[in-house]
């Protein structure tokens, strides 16, 4: 697909230049959550026979893969409104699919890096999860959902300020309520139902089950895959409309 490699390569070259900064940035939040919640607050607490730290690590994998894949929205936004680099892609004889796929994969690669950071921290803090293929599948599907959503949102917003609002009102609440830090079965029935609409809830549940060496419910993967396809289709549609 002409253009796909160009879009992806551009993002990878920039990632390489910012690598250490990016890596440091990806490490700060998980490290703080592990210290503050995993040790200081949840030290003796146990969930389904696991320490709170063991419970927390899969949630952090889900959260980091979400926030880091969604973070490409800010880069696309800056490239579009501030540097006008998006116009270079618009003027090229490439399909919108190449652009969306290139940016989405770039977001997923960032998410993979952030997962690597959380896994490294989990080893350092003595709570490594079971890293089977189902954990990676759930994490990748989660990254696919939020990277696609990031491309779509970056095209829909009209300014950097709007982009920041999206993160504040969508990503941050989801990060805390999507089964990352506490088991959702402690919430009232209606809240559990409402939160089951969040893709992150399914990502956390699937990653946690896989991390504990169990087989996650297939419904989590199906819902994540459907959400990913919908977000990707939305991204394609809004990229087409961005020509004005």
């Amino acid at each position: 697909m002409p253009g796909f490699i160009a879009v992806l390569l551009r993002e990878m070259l920039i990632l390489r230049r910012r690598f250490l900064r990016q890596l440091a940035g990806m490490s700060v939040s998980p490290l703080l959550y592990i210290i503050a919640f995993g040790y200081a607050m949840g030290g003796e607490a146990r969930f389904d026979g696991h320490s709170y730290l063991e419970f927390l690590i899969p949630g952090l994998i889900a959260m980091s893969s979400m926030t880091q894949s969604f973070a490409i929205a800010t880069d696309i936004n800056v490239a579009r409104f501030y540097w006008h680099i998006f116009e270079e892609f618009q003027a090229a004889p490439i399909r919108d699919l190449a652009y969306v796929a290139g940016e989405t994969l770039a977001g997923m690669i960032r998410a993979l890096l952030s997962i690597g950071v959380v896994l490294l921290l989990s080893f350092l803090f003595g709570a490594p999860p079971h890293c089977g293929p189902l954990l990676w599948l759930a994490a990748l599907l989660n990254a696919f959902v939020f990277a696609s959503l990031a491309v779509a949102m970056a095209m829909l917003v009209k300014s950097h300020a709007d982009q920041s609002l999206l993160t504040t009102f969508i990503i941050t609440p989801m990060a805390f309520l999507g089964g990352t830090f506490f088991p959702l079965d402690r919430l009232p029935e209606w809240a559990q139902r409402a939160l089951s609409f969040l893709p992150l809830t399914h990502a956390s549940a699937a990653i946690r089950a896989a991390a504990f060496g169990e087989t996650p419910a297939a419904s989590h993967f199906i819902i994540l895959a459907l959400a990913g396809v919908l977000a990707f289709a939305l991204a394609l549609s809004v990229v087409k409309k961005a020509r004005d």
Binding site: R10, I14, E87
Partner: peptide, 12 residues
């Protein structure tokens, strides 16, 4: 196309 606003990639 060489657009009015320089849209080169500064980080490349």
């Amino acid at each position: 196309l060489a657009p009015q606003q320089i849209n080169l990639d500064n980080e490349l």
